[in-house]
Design a protein around this nucleic acid. Structure first.
Lengths: 231, 231
DNA sequence: CGGGATATTGATTGATTTCAATGTGAGTGG
DNA sequence: CCACTCACATTGAAATCAATCAATATCCCG
């Protein structure tokens, strides 16, 4: 376990995206700089493992290109995806000695990998970086809470609508979405089956709220209608 | 409703299970010391608010006695409880400027409240404390991931079994549980209705896995059977 | 001994899953 | 260039688990 003096500076904390599902929005902060300096870019094939549950958590990660999923599985194979990480997002930011979940590349991706001990040492001297680490961790916590509400209390249609809005916002363009993940990934993130996801998308398209051009490309015709669907 | 001192003894809390759902296990660390020094004990009535969503996050909290729930609600009233905190547990540990969820006392409770700026200032000089803050935050993250698996992928019976085991482990005594929360709280934590929770408990009792002595007192007759039910 | 909140139990409904085809699209090799 | 294949997605019908609706039942507490 580390005992670096992470310098938590209470003073600042730059306004992070209000309640976006973005798991780690602190990309453009001091943390981003660290990865630019101390992070080695590593390519990952589609579906390849980045780290496994219970493995030592010796590194921090930042998505450069592509997309990453973190997940847990039950013995019988049921899988729950905890979060998707898109370019700029930071993940694997755990304080414990071991990872609590696994991470895989959703598609061919590039990830910058920074040795944890180095980042923490830098954080000890740079208050902004310490704060950025907090930001990232807290962003993950907030996204997790938000997602619990989705999983515990929302209907299938509400779940899909929430997902589309979230991905749309994080993807930069609010209206045209290029999904990096399969229907199975979406289903395992939303706590549904692929059939239900598919049917729900079809229904949203039939009602004119979205249009699909191939299953990975989705146009949000009426985002405000989606927002209403989220309750 | 009774206000009898449900016997969660803050002093004990023996070796907590490794990957228990315990949201913030770092109680006996440097963080515990901080609360002992810098934390003012504050009493809260049953169901009273400790902080609200979107309020400034100027304090950190530690449960001394009683129990606390954090939650989010949808506009139409659907509620999802994100976590329960028992004596020793730390909560409200957010890096952002505002809380991402609300917190209430489940029962008459005492909570130590420490000014965030003070704790962070201490952390800047005490590496162990900085690490402890990380531990607590990461513990929360881990518990959230675990709970997402419950909410997204487990059946009603599996959810209730997971819950009983988790509370049993955290409560100290592994076999006799005094629930501090109502059925509605359990339901809102597990993403179920009170009827389903009630029925499931009745069924578990009928199959001899548990016994109930009043709805708040549950004896785990065969914890290993519960563990199997979790998959 | 009520009285009101909370919990249990029962009957029914309904959303989502499961099971089962069918459709589509990208990559391969003839 | 086209047939083929394999993975993935969509669609349909039936089954199922949990939610909903509706009574009781129990337990604090005054």
């Amino acid at each position: 376990m580390q005992k670096q003096a992470v310098t938590f500076n209470p003073a600042q904390a730059p306004a992070i995206a209000p309640s976006s599902g973005n798991p780690a929005p602190a990309a453009r902060s001091a943390l981003g700089d660290v990865f630019a300096v101390a992070g080695a870019p590593v390519p990952f094939e589609r579906n390849s493992e980045i780290f496994g549950e219970a493995e030592p958590a010796d590194y921090f990660y930042q998505v450069v290109g592509g997309a990453v999923r973190t997940y847990k599985v039950l013995e019988d194979g049921r899988r729950q995806i905890g979060a998707f990480y898109l370019p700029g997002d930071v993940f694997g930011l755990e304080a414990g000695e071991a990872h609590g979940f696994s991470a895989e590349a959703v598609m061919r991706s590039t990830v910058r990998v920074a040795r944890r001990s180095i980042v923490l040492a830098m954080a000890a001297r740079n208050p902004d970086l310490g704060a950025a680490l907090w930001q990232a961790a807290a962003g993950g916590m907030r996204a997790a809470q938000e997602h619990m509400l989705v999983l515990g209390r929302k209907s299938a249609e509400e779940r899909v609508a929430s997902f589309l809005l979230d991905i749309g916002q994080r993807g930069g363009c609010r209206e045209i979405i290029e999904l990096p993940m399969s229907r199975q990934d979406m289903a395992d993130y939303l706590g549904l089956t692929i059939e239900t996801v598919s049917r729900t998308l079809t229904h949203l398209q039939a009602s004119g709220v979205i249009s699909m051009h191939g299953c990975r490309s989705i146009h949000l015709n009426r985002p405000e209608a989606l927002a209403e669907l989220c309750e």
